[in-house]
Design a protein around this nucleic acid. Structure first.
Lengths: 236, 236
DNA sequence: AGAGGTCAAATTGTATACGATTTTCTGCAC
DNA sequence: GTGCAGAAAATCGTATACAATTTGACCTCT
C-alpha cells in the first residue's frame, strides 16, 4: 500500500500545533484522499508534519474521538472502517437530529443566511459540472457544507459540532458503501429545502430533509460482507 | 483552594491506562466532588494516579473533547465552567434529541428493559429518602442513568455516546446554576415516562420527556452574572 | 515442503528531559 | 505602604529515550 504520508498534502508553513495536523488529516479523510483502513503510523504522521510522535499521537487521538480514526491498542491508528451497522446508526442519528436542527435554524434564519445557502448551492452546482479529482473533492465538501451551514444557523454550537462529526463519518460511509458514482447528495434536494425554509413551510422542509437523508442512504449497499466465516468461504 | 487531587478517590490497583484516569476524573466531576473551575494540573493528576504527565495529559485532553474540562493554552486544564449560554445550548440539544431517542427506544423496548428501568426508578427513590453526601452523589448518578438507559435501549451507540456527554455536562450546569436543593430530576416524572412507554403511548411519552427536561431547566438561574461592571458593583 | 520456533525489525506505550510561558515572589525606588 | 521591575518557581509544550509488544523473516527439524 502506498505510504499514508504521500497521500496528504502539507503546506510548509511552520504553524505548529495539534489542531493543524488534526484538521489536515480530517480533511484528507473526508475528501477521500485517505481510504478507510489506511494505516496512520505515528512516525509517518510526525515526519510528514515535521513534529515529534507526541503531537502526531495527540492528533490521531483527537480524530479517534470523532470516529474518523480507530486506534487499536499496541497496533496503531487506522482510518476508520465503519461497519454496515455503524453506517446505519450514523444515518439514523442524522434522521433523528437534522429535522430538529432544521426547525431551530428556520426560526432564526436571516436573509443573509438564505443568501449564503444559495451561494453554497450555486458553488455546488458549478462543481458538479466540472470534471477531475479536485472538483470531485470540492464537491464532496460542498455538499456536506450545506448541512453544516444549517447547523451553524441554528445557533447551537453543541449540535453544530455533533453534525460535523456525523457529516464527516457519513463521508467515510459513502466512500465504503456508496454505489452510484454520482454525488453523494442530490443537489436539487438541497435547493428544495432552501425554498421551503424561505417560504416558512417548516413541516415541508423537515419532510424534504428526511427524504433527502433517506435518498443518500438508499444509494448505499449495506449488506453484511462477512469474511464468509472462514469455512463457508470454501465449502460449496 | 484544596488540592484537586485530594478530592478524588483512587483505588491502588495498578491498572494503568488513560481510560481509568479519564473515567475516574469524569465520575468525580459528574458526582460534583470536583467543582467547576477547579484546576487540574498535569503533575497533580499524574501523581495521583502514579503515572507520568504524558498519560495525565492524555486523559485531560480526552475530557476536554467531552466538554467536561477546558484546557487553556499554556495555562492548564480546569473543570469546565459552562456559561449560561452554553447551559442553554446543552438543554436545547437535549430537547432536540431525547424525544427522538425515546421513540427509537420505545420501538425496540423489551419487557426486560422495562424491568431494568423500573429497577433504576426504585433505586432512585431509595436514594432520595436517604441522607448524606454519598447518597446524594449516588442519586445524581441514578437520575442521569435513567436517560442514559433509554439511549442504550434505542440501540444507537452514537446517540448513546452523545447522550452521555449531554448528561455529564448537564450535571455541571446544575451544579453551577441549580437553585433548589432537591434532586435534579423529578423522580415521579421518570416513572410517568416509563408508564407511557409501557402502554405504548408514544406521543404522550415524548410530551412527558419534553416537559421533564423543561422542568429541570426551569430550576436553573441562567441570568448572566457579569463581574458587575466593576462600577455597578459599588454604586448601590 | 510444511510446521514450529527463535530472533530481528518495526511500531506503539510510557517516562523523562528540556525549553517556553506564565505566575509568583522579592526587593528596591518612591 | 505602594508600585513596578526582575528574578525565581511552577507549569505547560514538545522532543527524545527507553521499555513493551507486535510482525515478519529465517532457520531448523520432521
Amino acid at each position: 500500500m502506498k505510504s499514508a504520508a504521500s497521500a496528504m498534502s502539507h503546506d510548509d508553513t511552520q504553524e505548529t500545533g495539534v489542531p493543524q495536523i488534526r484538521d489536515a488529516i480530517r480533511e484528507a479523510i473526508v475528501e477521500r484522499r485517505l481510504s478507510p483502513g489506511t494505516k496512520l503510523s505515528e512516525s509517518d504522521v510526525g515526519n510528514l508534519f515535521n513534529v515529534s510522535r507526541t503531537l502526531a499521537r495527540a492528533a490521531l487521538q483527537a480524530l479517534s474521538y470523532e470516529g474518523l480514526v480507530s486506534v487499536e491498542k499496541n497496533r496503531g491508528a487506522f482510518v476508520a472502517y465503519p461497519s454496515p451497522e455503524e453506517a446505519r446508526q450514523i444515518f439514523a442519528a442524522r434522521r433523528l437530529v437534522e429535522p430538529g436542527i432544521l426547525r431551530d435554524a428556520a426560526a432564526r434564519v436571516t436573509p443573509s443566511d438564505i443568501q449564503h445557502l444559495k451561494q453554497l448551492l450555486l458553488e455546488e452546482g458549478r462543481l458538479m459540472s466540472e470534471r477531475g479529482q479536485t472538483a470531485r473533492r470540492a464537491e464532496i465538501k460542498a455538499s456536506g457544507d450545506f448541512h453544516l451551514t444549517l447547523a451553524a444557523i441554528s445557533g447551537n454550537a453543541i449540535m453544530q459540532r455533533f453534525m460535523e462529526e456525523l457529516v464527516a463519518r457519513s463521508s467515510l460511509v459513502i466512500a465504503l458503501y456508496g454505489q452510484s458514482t454520482v454525488s453523494s447528495c442530490g443537489h436539487s434536494e438541497h435547493g428544495d429545502i432552501i425554498e421551503a425554509i424561505e417560504s416558512k413551510e417548516l413541516d415541508r422542509a423537515c419532510h424534504l430533509m428526511l427524504h433527502h437523508i433517506a435518498h443518500i442512504e438508499a444509494d448505499l449497499d449495506l449488506r453484511e460482507r462477512k469474511s464468509l466465516g472462514l469455512k463457508e468461504a470454501f465449502e460449496l
